[in-house]
Design a protein around this nucleic acid. Structure first.
Lengths: 189, 189
DNA sequence: CCCACCCTACCGACCGGTCGGTATGCCTTA
DNA sequence: TAAGGCATACCGACCGGTCGGTAGGGTGGG
């Protein structure tokens, strides 16, 4: 539960990292945009890359929770896949900047944090994979295309979303999410 | 037709930019890796970001040419889509580093070059879009999901490929490409 | 045949400037 | 009056880019 100053710093960092990149954004720019000073930033964060870590943590925690919640509903495989995709696309559209930073700058994490994140991503990845494999085993989905490729395709669109999605574009996020889910499910028949 | 020294510099730059990012890679690192000196680098390139520009140019030129060549074959919509996807996935797998740099650092181009690249990308994008729309108009493809969403999904996988593809992984590129094409075409029925 | 001349390719010490991070102390609130 | 919650001034490392210089091969006049 970050305080007001902490939150202002993170918000400014996300916005600047998303538009210019991590290295191209100086600490001075961040504090100026957040209307605080360097003293305040280094009071709350030990180093610049703690900001990156915090951004990732917030994003991945929220997404993991969403997926777990959906799976516990115990829907059919098709409905589970649809719900996961829709929730993922909608929540990604709501947080395009965070996602853009995450996708572009993940490799800048140090060894320890990288390992931690890879484990979390892997868990996330394999949960979704499990849903599709179950649907294939039950005969609800076709087995023509291996499940891992389907997962790659699904996450591919989502992670590229910050590249082309614009909040003021013609299609609202919910409609986009529906179209993407339709297409993936069509491919699974 | 770059000379040996020039080529060594570009190769080193691609490798380093892909693994550490553009800003995190110093000119000194590049020349050390390429076994040349700063003098040599600045003899061939006016500035560090000329290297980025050159990397993008090589990549996009090759891919555009591939797509044009396939379209001129005059195959059915389904076969054209399949050929485009297979060629794109295979050529991207062959140049994962270039693609990783392209996807992650494109926003660092200056205004003029950015405009030029957006135009080229748009053309590329719309050519593929045209193929799918034609298939839908002919009744060869379903119109359930709008063509632009399909294009986004297809380019999404390809651009995310550098994140997970490993040349020494279990699936050879051609097989991966086939699976992806199968899935997209299944979604278009 | 040779030597003066030149030109391309390359070298590496150096510079101005910026950046992440720190040291120190004030000031408010409990 | 102690303790967080900041502000300000500053540091040293490093970075992209420059610049005076060199090595060596081609070439043309004598």
């Amino acid at each position: 539960m970050p305080g007001a100053t902490e939150q202002k710093i993170i918000d400014a960092a996300v916005r600047l990292f998303a538009s210019q990149g991590y290295d191209a954004t100086s600490v001075q720019e961040i504090v100026t945009a957040a209307e605080v000073t360097k003293g305040a930033l280094y009071h709350y964060f030990r180093a610049k890359d703690d900001l990156l870590f915090e951004i990732y943590r917030l994003l991945i925690t929220a997404q993991s929770a969403d997926m777990d919640r959906i799976i516990e509903l115990g829907l059919s495989s098709a409905d589970t896949v649809r719900e996961i995709l829709v929730s993922l696309v909608v929540s990604t559209a709501e947080r395009v900047d965070e996602t853009a930073v995450f996708v572009r700058e993940m490799h800048r994490l140090d060894e320890a944090r990288m390992t931690e994140f890879r484990a979390e991503r892997r868990r996330y990845h394999e949960t979704f994979l499990g849903v599709i494999e179950k649907g294939q085993a039950d005969g609800e989905f076709s087995s023509a295309v291996p499940a891992d490729t389907v997962v790659r395709i699904a996450f591919g669109v989502v992670n590229q979303l910050p590249v082309w999605y614009r909040p003021d574009g013609p299609k609202p996020p919910a409609r986009l999410a529906g179209e993407i889910a339709d297409f993936v499910l069509a491919g699974l028949r």
